[in-house]
């Protein structure tokens, strides 16, 4: 856990217009799973302001390297080797540190290691598709993986997902909890995908699209993509953390 200053104020109200609506019939799975009532707003209490925080001690040495963390010794996953990195910030551009980021994805052929995925593309015996890391003091994070493939999915038509990586993000308050997906700059499927297009604001889609980052590419090894994530900000001031050694 981060020592020193801890933020413990109420969160800014969520701008629900930036997020997809619950009911988006072009994404068929939402039809029976979308609540009809509006969400009820209320003033944050400690139940929303607090949240679990995960230290670096949680991590194993290969948790943030999907090219090897499911591979046989000496082997690695098939696909374009990439580095995904960026910063976790709040709406006031403050770094969110000690935050757990979890990611999952299909393999280079667009196939998930999951019993419900029956796509004909083969599994890669050296790729699990699961990783995690914890953000540093400046909110930065980085992991290695392979670029996932696009794949078709049953939604009523000829729908294909763009290449994407799923992100599960913790802040330091449970009300910041977020799951989203990262897309890749220049992917023509982004404009065609019913799930991406549940987001109405083009700027919000751009924010989920990682940019090629040649400055952080490792020559003869891996291409870098930059992906910053923004969580809700807090309305109030910083407090000294009184929980030593927690």
């Amino acid at each position: 856990m981060a020592k020193g200053k801890v933020q413990s104020g109420a969160f800014n109200p969520r701008d629900l217009a930036r997020h997809p609506s619950p009911l988006t019939p072009s994404y068929r799975s939402s039809v029976l799973r979308a609540p009809a009532h509006a969400r009820i707003s209320f003033e944050n209490s400690l139940s929303e302001i607090t949240g679990p925080v995960f230290g670096q001690g949680l991590l194993g040495p290969a948790d943030n390297d999907l090219t090897i963390n499911y591979a046989q010794p000496g082997q690695s996953a098939i696909g374009e080797r990439i580095i995904v990195h960026g910063r976790l910030l709040d709406e006031d551009a403050r770094p969110v540190s000690s935050a757990l980021l979890e990611f999952w994805q299909a393999n280079a052929g667009g196939r998930y290691r999951h019993k419900n995925d029956g796509y004909v593309a083969p599994l890669d015996p050296n790729f699990g598709g699961c990783g995690r890391t914890v953000t540093a003091q400046d909110g930065s994070y980085s992991f290695r993986t392979i670029r996932p493939g696009p794949y078709p999915w049953p939604n009523g038509g000829n729908d294909w997902r763009p290449a994407h990586i799923h992100f599960s993000v913790f802040g330091d308050g449970f009300a910041q909890r977020l799951i989203t997906q990262m897309y890749f700059q220049g992917d023509p499927h982004i404009q065609l995908c019913p799930i991406v297009q549940t987001i109405k604001d083009p700027d919000a889609i751009d924010q989920l699209t990682a940019q090629l980052d040649m400055d952080n590419t490792v020559p003869m090894d891996a291409i870098a993509y930059r992906f910053d994530i923004v969580l809700r900000g807090r309305r109030s001031t910083l407090f000294e953390n009184r929980l030593e050694g927690n």
Binding site: H19, R113, H114, K115, G129, H166, V169, Q181, L208, V230
Partner: peptide, 29 residues
């Protein structure tokens, strides 16, 4: 925004394979 410099990243569905990333042993990893 009125309250800050940046906007919250938009949510996307966790999808049918959320188990791989969040409960990998349950997913078979």
């Amino acid at each position: 925004t009125e309250t800050g410099k940046l906007k919250e990243s938009a949510s996307q569905t966790a999808g049918p394979y959320v188990h791989i990333g969040c409960v990998p042993s349950f997913a078979g990893l």
